[in-house]
Design a binder for these strands. Structure first.
Lengths: 150, 150
DNA sequence: TATTGTTATACTCTATAACTATA
DNA sequence: TATAGTTATAGAGTATAACAATA
């Protein structure tokens, strides 16, 4: 029998690639989705704050926000008091895409849990949440695009 | 509340990076571990068979087996009937490392499941195994080093 | 002097395709 | 002609470090 840790690693990679295949239809990669979501959750945030929260390099945030801005999903607004930093917000189109991603995520979840009963789904979700909390994983922050250097 | 799918993706990435940090102490990356394990599970197998089973490119298998051979963990033997192919086997040192990896995996699993009761661990493992089976994931084959091209 | 954002560059991992030796 | 293994090369994603503007 495989360990739960290996099954988690296996299923996590599988779930990620399945979801990202759907996100790719919207021309979004994993980090793009993470950044979009982080901006939606904290409108007006700065690129530095984003880099810290998602644990990715500021130089990468630049590129991702560039992409999202080019696609008309995100705006760089002038920060009211500090002219060095930008206040990031979703555009109306960005909000729409955010909603599409939410639907996509729900569909993906349903497909993945298809073999489980309603009761089993709840149990699984609770156990996963308990382990995730104990490991210090923060809601919405995917460790996959964390930078590992010093 | 996060979906089980996102929690899986999150926890899977976390579990992988935790385990690979330990494996890195033995100078092994994820693919190295996968190849080592696949050879242990099917001694005498060929590089082509390995590439098919793990769903990685034959050209990558060459590099991984090169590395493992340089470190004295794997041998390329002459195939008895087909001189084009190699029969791959673990060396005694390779067997030792394989055992170290097993211990490492068990420790890793214990650490990850620390917040759960014995009963909860069994439940979680069973639910994960059920979902993994339904998704067509094969035991020991990590989708993380699967090649995604045509 | 420190910080935000940016750019340029190097590094790592992976994919593609051409090659050799055997079959 | 097809297959096993190999090599060389190109591409994607990431990290590092230097820079300009502002604080």
């Amino acid at each position: 029998m495989e360990t739960a840790a290996f099954l988690l690693s296996q299923l996590g990679a599988h779930a990620s690639s399945q979801f990202l295949a759907r996100a790719a239809e919207l021309d979004l990669t994993g980090p793009h989705v993470g950044v979009l979501r982080a901006i939606a959750d904290d409108p007006g945030t700065s690129q530095q704050a984003l880099a810290q929260r998602l644990d990715i390099l500021p130089s990468r945030v630049v590129a991702f926000v560039d992409d999202l801005e080019d696609r008309g999903l995100v705006r760089r607004e002038r920060h009211p008091s500090d002219r060095r930093s930008h206040a990031l917000r979703l555009t109306p189109t960005g909000e729409q895409v955010r909603e599409q991603l939410r639907v996509l995520g729900a569909e993906h979840n349903d497909r993945l849990l298809a073999p489980l009963s309603e009761r089993e789904r709840v149990t699984l979700t609770e156990l996963l949440a308990k382990v995730a909390a104990a490991q210090g994983l923060r809601p919405g922050v995917h460790p996959g695009f964390r930078h590992l250097g010093r």
